[in-house]
Amino acid sequence: MSETTGAFDGLGTAEGLELLHGGDLTVEGRLTSASNATLYCTVSDGARSAACVYKPVAGERPLWDFPDGTLAGREVSAYAVSEALGWGVVPPTVHRDGPFGEGMVQLWVHGDTTVDLVALSREAGHTGLRRMAVFDAVINNSDRKIGHLLPTPGGHLYGCDHGVSFAEDYKLRTVLWQWQGQALTAESLEALEAVRALLADRGSALSHTLDRHLTGAEGRAVRRRVELLIEHRIHPYPSPDWPSVPWPPV
Rank of each mutant, 00 (worst) to 15 (best):
M1Q: 15
F8E: 09
T13C: 15
T13M: 10
E15A: 15
L17T: 13
G23S: 08
D24L: 14
G29I: 09
L31W: 13
T32I: 15
N36W: 09
T38M: 09
A47I: 10
A47P: 06
V53A: 06
E60I: 09
P62A: 07
P62D: 14
P62R: 13
P67N: 12
E75I: 09
V76C: 11
A78P: 04
A78Q: 14
Y79E: 07
V94H: 13
R96H: 12
R96E: 14
R96I: 09
G98Q: 05
P99M: 03
E102V: 08
W108C: 03
V109D: 00
V115R: 03
V118A: 13
L120T: 06
S121P: 11
G125F: 10
G125H: 15
L129H: 14
A133D: 04
V134M: 04
D136P: 04
A137E: 00
V138I: 05
N140S: 08
R144G: 01
L149C: 05
G155Q: 02
H156M: 03
G159F: 06
G159M: 05
F166E: 09
E168D: 10
Y170I: 00
Y170C: 08
L172F: 03
V175S: 07
L176P: 12
Q180A: 03
Q180G: 06
L184N: 04
T185L: 04
A186D: 15
E187K: 01
R196M: 09
A205K: 11
L206R: 13
R212F: 08
R212L: 12
G216E: 11
A217Y: 00
A221Y: 00
V222I: 05
R223G: 08
R225M: 04
I230D: 02
E231P: 10
E231L: 10
H232C: 00
R233C: 11
I234F: 00
P240W: 02
W242Q: 12
P243H: 07
V245I: 15
V250D: 15
